[in-house]
Design a protein around this nucleic acid. Structure first.
Length: 485
RNA sequence: GGCGCUAUCGUCUAGGGGUUAGGACGUCAGAUUCUCAAUCUGAAAACCCGGGUUCGAUUCCCGGUAGCGCUACCA
């Protein structure tokens, strides 16, 4: 039994987008499932659109997702001799021929045909040129491209691992270009040459290549070589059912990273876009995926990318994550947003951990720690307008909060029970509902109407900071305070 | 236009000749009360249409429709 070899072949003409990431993931899962080899190949034969820095960005995204590879990256731009060798082999054997048709002329013919609603296929002008004719044209220095000589009859079929049997009349396939007039290989040539050279056994790629596959199979035949097994993956669409693109907002893996999405959550989400494990579980670890992954069970229809579900899944991962694992991630987020203080790993370590634990259950993304959780990591936070409007209506609140601060500072122990009793006693004495005080205090401590339970917030902040913030809030609440709502 | 592929709740999907068509996200309502999230309970929500095969099609076949893809000297 020959070794199973798959490849992921991104083109560095953009960042790694979620569709590409899912293709990479499915390749990876399939290979890991069957003890195969993952090969990474960079398809950079389009010199105009390919950018080296994008290659690095793609590599970074793959690594971030936790998708590793065993061989490569191979760069197609460094393998041109291979493609030319294959090209001349095909030409020598009569499976390819030089075409001298000027591109603009072909363009014109194509447009004419289109205008007349006629199907257009390369008309074969140069297909049967005699050798002397060819020699003459070459002598004239006319530029030429190399075209594949497609059989004019018969049909090409293959069994796709996800789509099943696909059949196409050869007459539908035109004599496509293998080598451009500048000597650069086209995609069809380079993929086949590379997949052959790298001994790829399974080609797993986007369904946008489904229609190209017969062309490539014809090339395998012409090179009298066996063809790999093909598996095409349905496309990922935006909410409007159009192919996912910049229009839809974030499409790149990096954009989700920047939004505070965890790589394990994105991986899980992408895996379930087009495949479901036998048990129907939603949260699936990479180990479980590898164990259960099956291309034959993959969906055949396109899938809409739903950011809402991703967000939910991310919150699940956040919530289930052990604190020790979460801490460094939050630290990273705080560093990015300028909220990190070295004290959090020193004197204030306990407070830092308490805060993270408190925020953990309600966080949807890592961004929530630095945004809605801001007040836990810095004294520099605003009192939100909405919060003041909602909970700072009562005029005597300033006095009450001052009283509360006073009493809290005299508490024998600053724990959950005592602080709560302290506040409720005060509320009772003043003849108000505890909620009034609780909500007002929450705004004072966090600046927000929405935050974790008040007494837990107090504990996470510590007595000193709690008292100080309550007094500050009282001052902000006083009629004389300039920034009163 | 030609060719190819696809079609189960709004979305991701399970299922499959006889099912109350299952789950998840989202939505709505209720419980909880300290705001929100979480949690719990409940609800609304789907087999694209038409033929055929069959005792019986959502499931199998054909046609239609729709969507997507390919139709480059892009990948």
């Amino acid at each position: 039994m020959t070794e199973l070899r798959v490849r992921f072949a991104p083109s560095p003409t953009g960042y790694l987008h979620v569709g590409g990431a899912r293709t990479a993931l499915y390749n990876w899962l399939y290979a890991r499932r069957h003890a195969g080899t993952v090969i990474l190949r960079i398809e950079d034969t389009d010199a105009d659109r390919s950018k080296p820095e994008l290659t690095q960005a793609i590599l970074d995204s793959l690594e971030w997702l936790g998708l590793d590879w065993d061989e490569g990256p191979y760069y197609q731009s460094e393998r041109l001799e291979l493609y030319r060798a294959r090209a001349s082999q095909l030409e020598r054997q009569g499976h390819a021929y030089p075409c001298f048709c000027p591109p603009d002329e072909l363009q014109k013919k194509r447009q004419t045909a289109e205008a007349a609603h006629r199907a257009w296929k390369y008309d074969g002008t140069c297909r049967d040129l005699s050798e002397p004719d060819r020699a003459r044209r070459r002598a004239q220095g006319r530029p030429w491209a190399l075209r594949f000589r497609t059989p004019e009859s018969g049909r090409t079929a293959f069994d796709d691992l996800v789509f099943g049997r696909i059949e196409l009349e050869n007459s539908e396939i035109e004599d496509f270009v293998l080598l451009r007039s500048d000597g650069q290989p086209t995609y069809h040539l380079s993929v086949v040459a590379d997949d052959l050279d790298l001994r790829i056994t399974h080609v797993i790629r986007g369904a946008d290549h489904l229609s190209n596959t017969p062309k490539q199979i014809l090339m395998y035949h012409a090179l009298s070589s066996s063809q790999p097994v093909f598996a095409h993956l349905p496309l990922i669409l935006g909410p409007d059912k159009q192919r996912l693109s910049k229009r839809h907002g974030a499409t790149s893996v990096g954009a989700y990273r920047d939004q505070g999405i965890l790589p394990e959550a994105l991986m899980n989400f992408l895996a379930l876009l087009g495949w479901a494990p036998p048990g129907g579980k939603e949260i699936v670890s990479p180990e479980e995926m590898v164990e259960q992954f099956d291309l034959a069970a993959a969906s055949k229809s396109n899938a809409v990318f739903d950011p809402e579900k991703l967000a939910w899944m991310n919150s699940e991962y956040l919530r289930r994550m052990p604190l020790e694992a979460l801490l460094p991630r939050v630290r990273g987020e705080l560093e990015i947003s300028g909220l990190w203080s070295s004290a959090f790993s020193g004197s204030e370590r306990q407070r830092f951990e308490d805060s993270v634990r408190l925020l953990q259950t309600r966080a949807r993304t890592l961004k929530d720690f630095s945004e809605s959780g801001r007040a836990f990591f810095t004294d520099d936070f605003p009192y939100e307008l909405e919060a003041r409007r909602k909970f700072w209506k009562e005029s005597r609140l300033a006095d009450w909060l001052r009283d509360l601060a006073q009493r809290l500072s005299n508490l024998s122990s600053f724990d959950l029970e005592q602080t709560e009793k302290c506040l409720r006693d005060l509320a009772e004495e003043k003849g108000i509902r505890a909620g009034v005080l609780i909500n007002a205090a929450r705004v004072g401590l966090t600046g927000q109407a929405v935050a974790p339970g008040l007494f837990e917030v107090m504990r996470a902040l510590g007595r000193e900071r709690t008292v100080r913030r309550l007094e500050r809030a009282a001052a902000a609440l006083a009629p004389s305070a300039p920034d009163r709502a």
